[in-house]
Every structure is written in C-alpha cells, then in structure tokens.
Amino acid sequence: MRQKALQEHSIHYSELHPVLQGKRLIAFDLDGTLIDSVPDLAAAVARTLNELGLPASSETEVRDWVGNGAPVLVERALAWALNAAPEPALLERGYDVFMVHYGAAPNTLTTLYPGVKQTLQALHQQGLTLVLITNKPERFIEPLLSHFELLDYFTLLIGGDSLAEKKPHPLPLLHAARNCQIPPSACVMVGDSRHDMAAGKAAGFTTLALPYGYNHGEPIETSNPDLVLNSLTELLA
C-alpha cells in the first residue's frame, strides 16, 4: 500500500460539478474506470489457459469476468474452460501462471479512457484528495499509473491484496477515509461496477458510476448509484 503525505489545499467548488459540493476525498476504481485493461488481461488469461492445455477464452468473455480481483478472474476462466469448478491445486497453479503472464505485459494493450488525465489533474489542482481503490493486485498498480503519468495525483493506493477485505466490502474505503482523516460523508466513490457502488454505499460515500466499464454485462444503473456520469470530465464545471 502506497501513501504520500497530505497537503493542505483550499477547494474551489465553483469549478466542480455540484455533486462534489462539500466533498474532500474522491476514491477511484482503476480497471474499467480510468483504464481499459481488458485487452492485456485477456491476453494473459489466454496464455494461461494455453499453458495449462485448456481452450483459450476471448476478450469478450474476459470483459464479463473482471472486477473481483485476479484470483476470481482465474477461477472464472478455468471454470469456463473446464465447464466445471477447478480443483484447488489447478486454481493455485493457474493463478501463478496468470501472474507471470500478466506481470510480463500489463500495459502493452491497455489504454487510458478519454478525459481521465485532464480530470485527475484538475481535481488535484482544485485541492481534492484523490485515492485509488482497486481489486487488482497491489504490485501492478504503481507501474500502470506511472506508465500513464497518473501516479502523482494520488495520495493513497489500495489494491485487492492490500487489506484483509476488498470491494464490495467497505473496508478499503473506510481505511482510506480514516488514513486521510476525512469523514465518509465528505468522500466519493467513482467506479464502473456494482462492487464499487456496494462498497461506496456501505462505507457512507457518495457513489458516482460510469457506464462504459466492466459490470458483468449489467447496466450500472441497476446498482442505484447517486449519479451516473457519461465521462469523468463531467466532474468539472
């Protein structure tokens, strides 16, 4: 878990979306919110299945499997390939193989969604505390953010294996609020999936949803976020 010292800023709410009025911290999901990482995840899953002697999945299938962290992604891929639940030993091996393949090329095909960098830069300049809360393994977060030149905007980085629980559990969000000394009522969760919305609601955060990410084929509106944004740039007035 990476954290940098908090700096005191005044927040210029007139330059922000009204939903951010009185807010001091914004937590962002990563995959499906800031970056489209499925192409690289799908390539790593396909290589993993091939190495295990199983039929390879496609990018379309992987888009419905992501969102709960790497172990669940691998479990879903193996279950699909086997048409049955994988044995624990195979699941463990599959996870190890996947981590090698994904670690070798985590940003070859991954792209930044439009408007992300300008929005993060503007929010940071306005004085808001930005944190990243993802279910992706922690080891991949900093290299990806550095690759897209986003790392300096974030005060705290929390991965799926950073704490005892991950989204949809509220613990990572509450941990971020506590560490940044900001009450949940002054915090926002921005994400693309039902797990982000559930974690945000349980933590007492305002929930903002994006419709273009990965939500297991479900419309994000069914998760009842406080607001749906078509683009992150809508956070700026």
Results as ranks from 00 to 15, higher is better:
residue 138 E to K: 05
residue 152 D to Y: 11
residue 136 K to F: 02
residue 125 Q to C: 11
residue 137 P to F: 11
residue 140 F to I: 06
residue 160 G to R: 00
residue 179 N to C: 14
residue 133 I to R: 00
residue 160 G to H: 03
residue 162 S to P: 00
residue 172 P to M: 08
residue 157 L to H: 09
residue 143 P to I: 09
residue 151 L to V: 11
residue 170 P to W: 01
residue 147 H to I: 07
residue 140 F to Y: 13
residue 130 L to S: 07
residue 123 L to H: 02
residue 119 T to A: 06
residue 166 K to N: 07
residue 130 L to Y: 07
residue 156 L to A: 04
residue 129 T to E: 10
residue 167 K to E: 07
residue 180 C to A: 15
residue 154 F to I: 05
residue 122 A to V: 10
residue 144 L to E: 03
residue 147 H to S: 04
residue 133 I to Y: 00
residue 148 F to G: 01
residue 170 P to Y: 04
residue 150 L to D: 04
residue 141 I to Q: 01
residue 133 I to L: 14
residue 163 L to P: 00
residue 164 A to G: 08
residue 154 F to P: 01
residue 126 Q to E: 11
residue 132 L to M: 10
residue 149 E to A: 15
residue 124 H to T: 07
residue 146 S to V: 12
residue 141 I to T: 08
residue 149 E to W: 06
residue 141 I to V: 14
residue 152 D to I: 10
residue 167 K to R: 14
residue 172 P to I: 06
residue 148 F to V: 06
residue 168 P to Q: 11
residue 139 R to Y: 09
residue 133 I to Q: 00
residue 170 P to D: 04
residue 128 L to V: 06
residue 173 L to Y: 00
residue 179 N to M: 15
residue 131 V to D: 02
residue 148 F to E: 09
residue 162 S to V: 05
residue 166 K to W: 06
residue 147 H to D: 08
residue 118 Q to S: 15
residue 139 R to V: 13
residue 160 G to L: 03
residue 160 G to E: 03
residue 158 I to G: 01
residue 129 T to D: 08
residue 125 Q to T: 14
residue 159 G to T: 02
residue 128 L to I: 06
residue 169 H to F: 09
residue 146 S to H: 11
residue 159 G to N: 02
residue 136 K to H: 07
residue 142 E to D: 12
residue 144 L to M: 14
residue 138 E to D: 13
residue 175 H to A: 03
residue 156 L to G: 03
residue 133 I to H: 00
residue 143 P to N: 10
residue 177 A to T: 05
residue 181 Q to V: 10
residue 136 K to D: 07
residue 167 K to M: 08
residue 151 L to M: 13
residue 168 P to E: 05
residue 128 L to Y: 00
residue 155 T to N: 14
residue 140 F to H: 03
residue 152 D to K: 12
residue 118 Q to G: 09
residue 145 L to H: 04
residue 121 Q to K: 13
residue 162 S to T: 15
residue 174 L to D: 01
residue 170 P to T: 11
residue 119 T to E: 03
residue 158 I to H: 01
residue 169 H to Q: 09
residue 177 A to Q: 02
residue 137 P to S: 12
residue 129 T to K: 10
residue 176 A to C: 10
residue 165 E to A: 15
residue 166 K to V: 08
residue 146 S to N: 13
residue 146 S to W: 08
residue 151 L to D: 13
residue 118 Q to P: 02
residue 126 Q to N: 14
residue 139 R to D: 07
residue 179 N to V: 14
residue 149 E to R: 14
residue 146 S to C: 12
residue 165 E to K: 15
residue 139 R to W: 07
residue 160 G to V: 02
residue 131 V to L: 04
residue 159 G to S: 05
residue 141 I to F: 05
residue 136 K to G: 06
residue 137 P to A: 13
residue 177 A to N: 06
residue 121 Q to E: 14
residue 141 I to H: 02
residue 175 H to N: 09
residue 173 L to R: 06
residue 123 L to P: 01
residue 144 L to R: 04
residue 164 A to H: 08
residue 151 L to C: 10
residue 155 T to V: 14
residue 162 S to R: 07
residue 170 P to Q: 05
residue 170 P to H: 10
residue 137 P to H: 13
residue 123 L to G: 01
residue 140 F to P: 03
residue 164 A to M: 12
residue 150 L to F: 11
residue 145 L to Y: 04
residue 145 L to Q: 04
residue 130 L to E: 08
residue 156 L to R: 03
residue 169 H to M: 09
residue 175 H to P: 05
residue 144 L to C: 12
